[in-house]
Amino acid sequence: MRESAAERHDRLLELVRRRGSVRVSDLAGQLGVSPVTARRDVEALAVRGLLDRVHGKVSWPHTEGAPGVPAQGIPGGGSGGGGRELVLGMLAPNATYYFAEVIRGAHEAAAAAGARLILRISDYRPQDDPALAAGLVAAGAEGLLVAPGWKEPHDPVEHGRWIAELPVPTVLLERRGVPGGALDDLDRVCSDHAHGVLLAVRHLTGLGHRAPLLVARADSPTAVAVRAGYRQALDALGLQAPRPVIGSVPAETDPAGFEATVRALLDAMGDGEATAALVHNDVDAIRIVQRLAELGVRVPQDLALVAYDDEVAALADIPLTAVAPPKHEVGRYAAQLLIERLRGASTEPSAGPRRHVDLLPRLRVRSSCGAPRPGEDTDAPALQAATTAHP
């Protein structure tokens, strides 16, 4: 199976975390890629702030102390507890696509508070999450930001109970447990993906299209939330889906499945059932537009299209209108909430009511939907937070 760029980036980041620093000239051999690919990967990760590149070497940003352990505090900042530095642990499924911004937001909030953030990556292997979290606690983390490596709908049930049993304060990131389950009593900060889908559907219908077709993955909590949000959006607007959801798969690992996705979309267009589509995620959307162009279908003239994630949508040949979850703000707000819990615990055992915080995505309007309506806000709506307190 061919390795994706995101998987290769994760290997590169893990290598740098373990080694502390690596010469760029040595990376190609260690990663098994060409020197050109290694340099391109380093540049992409450095631009995103995930690596520091100085004098022919790459290193983990702001590394202090032991190699491979990022110490991201502010000198002299302290935690407010007699000058002692507060240590936060963060478990994420990857450090590149989507979660790079979540990590950066948490890092910035920790640094601003004079705290140190240490990170471990699960590579979407939920069975490894408990050991990784235990490793963070053993390394000194006094509280945890946890985004489990769930991929399947049943993963919260099969691989979630351990989170409620952690011995330190914990905030869930971009993850929801089973309603009424043990994780409902934890703090959590999430993007409201249902609202993001509603923005996309409302925008497309406002441009004169009937209900858009959904083309979506089914391999992550975000994908599951987008699919559920699609049903909710259609119900809220009194619309019917033109066809069942078309499943999407990565073109690089399943080219035949990807081609079947494109053909299913073409069939819906040919039957007059769809003139617009919402596609999760950005990478799939860009590849679908490219393949449609090869087959003579023009975006936006023949098909209006909105992508979901807004990681690289703006860089497509035809810049893609996209729903942008507030990834950076999710990480920042979660870290601030965890720091509040840790600092409040010394004076107030309960540290206040638990919070479930939903942050609203934005719709970023670009070229792939055609001309917006007169007066259309090209970055709407403003970020808002809906907070529910749970005792």
Rank of each mutant, 00 (worst) to 15 (best):
residue 113 A to L: 03
residue 134 A to T: 09
residue 249 V to Y: 06
residue 7 E to M: 14
residue 294 E to R: 11
residue 357 V to R: 06
residue 121 I to G: 03
residue 207 L to R: 15
residue 295 L to E: 15
residue 381 P to I: 00
residue 320 L to S: 02
residue 143 G to V: 09
residue 81 G to E: 15
residue 62 H to P: 02
residue 45 L to I: 06
residue 307 A to L: 02
residue 154 H to D: 12
residue 166 L to D: 07
residue 279 V to G: 00
residue 188 R to L: 08
residue 177 G to K: 02
residue 175 R to P: 00
residue 223 A to Y: 00
residue 111 A to Y: 03
residue 271 D to K: 04
residue 268 A to E: 08
residue 373 R to V: 12
residue 104 R to G: 05
residue 10 D to G: 06
residue 238 G to D: 09
residue 194 A to H: 10
residue 75 P to Y: 11
residue 2 R to E: 15
residue 58 V to M: 10
residue 83 G to E: 15
residue 1 M to S: 13
residue 204 L to D: 10
residue 1 M to R: 14
residue 283 V to M: 08
residue 206 G to P: 08
residue 150 W to I: 01
residue 352 G to S: 10
residue 347 T to D: 15
residue 57 K to N: 11
residue 38 A to C: 06
residue 252 E to F: 15
residue 111 A to T: 07
residue 320 L to M: 07
residue 38 A to N: 04
residue 348 E to P: 00
residue 69 V to D: 03
residue 31 L to I: 01
residue 109 A to G: 02
residue 155 D to R: 05
residue 356 H to Q: 11
residue 39 R to Y: 08
residue 263 R to A: 13
residue 188 R to N: 05
residue 261 T to C: 10
residue 113 A to S: 10
residue 11 R to M: 04
residue 271 D to W: 01
residue 341 R to V: 06
residue 90 M to Q: 12
residue 182 A to V: 05
residue 45 L to P: 03
residue 247 G to E: 10
residue 212 P to V: 01
residue 269 M to T: 01
residue 8 R to F: 10
residue 124 Y to M: 10
residue 32 G to V: 07
residue 254 D to P: 06
residue 222 T to C: 01
residue 239 L to H: 09
residue 252 E to K: 11
residue 152 E to A: 12
residue 232 Q to F: 04
residue 357 V to W: 09
residue 105 G to D: 03
residue 100 A to M: 11
residue 335 A to P: 09
residue 230 Y to S: 05
residue 377 D to P: 01
residue 237 L to M: 14
residue 65 G to S: 10
residue 230 Y to W: 14
residue 230 Y to K: 05
residue 60 W to F: 09
residue 193 H to D: 14
residue 210 R to D: 14
residue 90 M to D: 04
residue 184 D to Q: 04
residue 46 A to E: 13
residue 41 D to S: 06
residue 109 A to C: 04
residue 225 A to L: 10
residue 85 E to L: 15
residue 101 E to R: 15
residue 26 D to E: 12
residue 27 L to C: 07
residue 96 T to P: 00
residue 123 D to Q: 12
residue 238 G to S: 05
residue 341 R to Y: 06
residue 369 C to V: 08
residue 121 I to D: 08
residue 52 D to E: 15
residue 95 A to P: 07
residue 20 G to R: 10
residue 277 A to E: 02
residue 201 V to K: 09
residue 163 I to Y: 00
residue 196 G to S: 03
residue 246 I to Q: 01
residue 236 A to K: 14
residue 43 E to H: 14
residue 257 G to E: 07
residue 272 G to A: 02
